[in-house]
């Protein structure tokens, strides 16, 4: 028989989120749990409180004492049974019955259904003495509860690393933008330089043409001067004669 020590505290420290591991149970089961705790705590509180673990007691509490109006009532339980689940239990892949069998005296059949996010595990317990009564405890577990609690533990470190990474990514993106702007500016300057070069080349060509023209003019002037000189000499000769 399982052994417990009951405790009482007015305040407990919990994480900021204040969310524990959750299950959903029927009203009669939650009442049974509460009654068990209340009755047994009061009963054993009258005895001297323990400072250390007690010696093992052989005292066995009768079920009737623990659960007045016990939830294990054939009539009440049967009304809530889902016959399809009871008749064809399906063992979920993550539930190892062999590991639980030694710890639990009653036979257990397990069925599961539901979406990936929510898994309903119906535990159907049968009395060993062949009693007709059956009790179904519907335990609805949120699969992400385990993940969430794990992630809550790692969050402070991961959060810091994530923040740093986000900052680095943001800086990189800013640098990329700046580089792009600079590239655009360089391209624009290059284009302007090309235009200037074209203009310069055109101007050079015009100058070259002008120089050529000047040379031609000079040649003409020179040839004209020669003619004038020759004419002047001829005139002088004729005059002397």
């Amino acid at each position: 028989m399982a052994k417990l020590i009951l405790m009482k505290k007015n305040e407990i420290s919990v994480p900021e989120e204040k969310k524990g591991k959750q299950i959903a149970v029927k009203e009669n089961n939650i009442v049974a749990l509460h009654e068990f705790y209340k009755n047994n705590y009061i009963k054993t509180e009258e005895e001297p409180k323990m400072d250390s673990l007690p010696e093992q007691k052989e005292e066995i509490l009768e079920q009737e004492q623990l659960f007045p109006g016990t939830p294990i009532q054939p009539g009440n339980a049967n009304e809530t049974l889902d016959n399809s689940i009871m008749e064809e239990p399906v063992i979920p892949s993550n539930f190892d019955i062999e590991s639980t069998a030694p710890a639990i005296e009653n036979g257990i059949s397990v069925s599961s259904n539901g979406t990936n996010e929510e898994q309903a595990i119906n535990l159907t317990l049968e009395e060993n003495n062949g009693a007709k009564g059956e009790q179904t405890i519907n335990l609805i577990l949120e699969e992400n509860q385990l993940d969430q609690s794990k992630s809550e533990e790692l969050d402070p470190e991961l959060k810091e690393i994530k923040e740093r990474l986000d900052k680095v990514i943001e800086d990189l993106n800013n640098y990329k933008k700046k580089i792009k702007l600079l590239e655009t500016e360089v391209n624009q300057n290059l284009e302007k330089s090309r235009e200037v070069l074209k203009d310069t080349q055109a101007a050079a060509k015009i100058m070259s043409i002008q120089q050529e023209r000047q040379r031609e003019i000079n040649d003409e002037i020179n040839s004209g001067s020669t003619i004038v000189n020759d004419s002047s000499r001829t005139l002088q000769m004729n005059t002397a004669a």
């Binding site: 028989m1 399982a2 052994k3 417990l4 020590i5 009951l6 405790m7 009482k8 299950i23 089961n29 049974a32 749990l33 068990f36 047994n40 705590y41 009963k43 054993t44 509180e45 005895e47 409180k49 323990m50 673990l53 007690p54 093992q56 007691k57 005292e59 066995i60 509490l61 009768e62 079920q63 623990l66 659960f67 016990t70 939830p71 294990i72 639980t100 710890a103 639990i104 005296e105 009653n106 535990l123 317990l125 009790q135 405890i137 335990l139």
Partner: peptide, 18 residues
């Protein structure tokens, strides 16, 4: 979960209180 089922089934021994 097993302990809770034991409590509901009355298969529990209370060894003391703290």
């Amino acid at each position: 979960k097993k302990t809770i089922i034991d409590v509901i089934n009355g298969k529990i021994e209370v060894a003391g209180v703290l």
